[in-house]
Design a protein around this nucleic acid. Structure first.
Lengths: 195, 195, 195, 195
DNA sequence: TATGAATGAGTTTTCATTCAT
DNA sequence: AATGAATGAAAACTCATTCAT
């Protein structure tokens, strides 16, 4: 029933990002999204199963392509340390280039229903795997300590980056977060250095 | 208007924690909380201005006393490194002893209205200050590196702990998170070590 | 059960007038009246059957004594024309001396429940009778026309005075309504003059 | 937002008149009005901003068209005296042909909230102006006395008619009020006659 | 494919009244 | 006589979703 392609599909997702960023999750009614996308309310339901499906699809589409970009960039690098720097850099730069998206993913979607949050979690696994791979590689290379569970390290890396981006969004993006890349990188690398 | 003391005040807050943990934020109606607290619906409004006030008060009461406990324990210790270990330990142990509360603060209240989230943020500042103080002390002692902004370090520490607790709650608390204290501590200390 | 005498009985009625005049009928809660009267909420119910009973009693007490005053003053006069002038004068002067009461009776109590309005109507009959008597006397004296039903004439007199007082209250009592006495009197007398 | 035309708009207003006349203002729930109009509760809010808006619109629509009718009829007459008779006649006949509407406007809407009562007052100004014009014309023609303020005279005329209609409604419309037209007319004309 | 008018379920809050003390 | 803490019933409004056109 729901077609996951087409101009209108994209238009609706982009409209959803705009509307949620501007009005907040709780004031992002389907009719508002439809108006922003220049389609009728009913048309939404030709492309999405329900409202939750818009939000889940939004996250999958936008973050999925973000994860792909990250994945491809990392493949061009060899060493775990360099990959880690690139991951931090991409995370900061891609989200700071898409402020609406940053607001939506860091703030607004976190107020959503359990179902949506669950689906977001599923999508995030893809990214967690990318980080896990860097950490594992670092341990194999002998540059990262091997006495800690990979998932603990990944949680530190992701938790720290995520907290930093959220703080940046909440401060109305008043400073240049990309320039913090090296600070965070050295923090992680020192914390993980094998001895 | 709102009497902030008395058995019923506490009973209502405890009932709110239970109901939200069991049914989720979006299904925690005032009437359900009243029934759990063994009071009439209207009685709630003798003690709280409105539903938001219950949730904000809940957070302030429960986390406030958690922050106090942490503060007092840290005062008994001298070195920043030890204080950091104690902070991690208390955070993990106090929340794992109060699973309902952990569910409410880590998952459910994060779906709440902007007003509530804002008030929660205000309360959290107290905790951020505690972490900032440890970090500052560590830098003064010469054991923590001084080339990073204190707030960045604090975000790493808080973000990592918070992410870990949330993951533990989401995994239905199937493992012993307190036993991870030393892992996280060594991660932070190594990441921060001055050279 | 309900004692219709005593200091507190009067205090509660006076408090009701004040509270309704200041806050309006819809914001005149029993607890507010109790506080103004310096008694406990429950005490109200030792003197009045319920909230309606306060309002009905208020009207009976205040307007009843107003009607008595009017009755006595009229008895001192002989001619219908003079009685009519005195009635208008007393109506205007007594209500303009009691602005709170004027607000309550002309505006606020008219928003009340059907039951209260019915009881008010019953009390008003006493006043209608006074006007009817003046009109009948005027017809007997041969100074008022006898081709109109007494009740129609009374409705004109009362409707006109009532409309005038209400307009004066709604204009925030910005002009001296007592000085309009003669205008209204001549209007009525000319309208009623027998030929 | 609120579409002020269409069958449903009229149906809802007519339903509101019926429901309020039958059950009284305080028991006229939105859901009852919706059922009477054969629409869903939510449909009401496609045509009206809120419940108050239904009542205000009801008054504007019904009385507005009544005022228009009156205005047009009066334009066909020349002399102030004749216009005054026509005004009384129309007021009595139009309201006695619409008993539900008479109940609503004379009794029920007078118990409504200050906001509604204020809006009703605004609409009534249109009618007051019509009466004022008749009185002014009568004074210019030299048939009405010129020693009284036009607004005082208007208040007498309106207050008297209004009081008469209200009494008729309260007496369960047991007599023919239209037949009283001439009585009231002669009362006014004599009261106002210039000498 | 696309429309948009219509639907109807679901919840917080107030406040008159009671009754144990 | 007096208190005041506790009670619980009652109603407006929003918005995701449908379906006839």
């Amino acid at each position: 029933m729901a077609r996951k392609t087409g101009d209108k599909y994209q238009a609706i997702i982009d409209a959803a990002v705009k509307v949620i960023a501007r009005h907040g999750y709780h004031h992002a009614q389907v009719s508002k999204i439809a108006r922003e996308a220049n389609v009728a309310d009913g048309t939404i339901y030709l492309y999405f199963k329900n409202k939750d499906d818009i939000l889940i699809s939004l996250f999958k589409e936008k973050m999925g392509s973000f994860f792909e970009t990250t994945h491809h960039h990392l493949n061009e690098l060899d060493r775990a340390e360099d990959k880690l720097r690139e991951l931090i850099h991409l995370h900061f730069s891609l989200l700071s280039e898409n402020r609406d998206l940053a607001i939506v993913t860091q703030i607004e979607l976190r107020q959503s229903d359990p179902d949506i949050r669950y689906q977001i979690g599923v999508t995030m696994k893809r990214y967690f795997q990318i980080i896990d791979d860097i950490v594992s590689q670092g341990i194999e290379e002998g540059v990262f300590r091997d006495d800690l569970d990979v998932r603990i390290i990944r949680r530190m890396i992701f938790g720290t980056i995520d907290e930093a981006i959220t703080a940046w969004v909440m401060k109305d993006q008043k400073y240049d977060i990309v320039s913090l890349t090296d600070s965070f990188h050295s923090l992680f690398v020192n914390g993980l250095r094998a001895r």
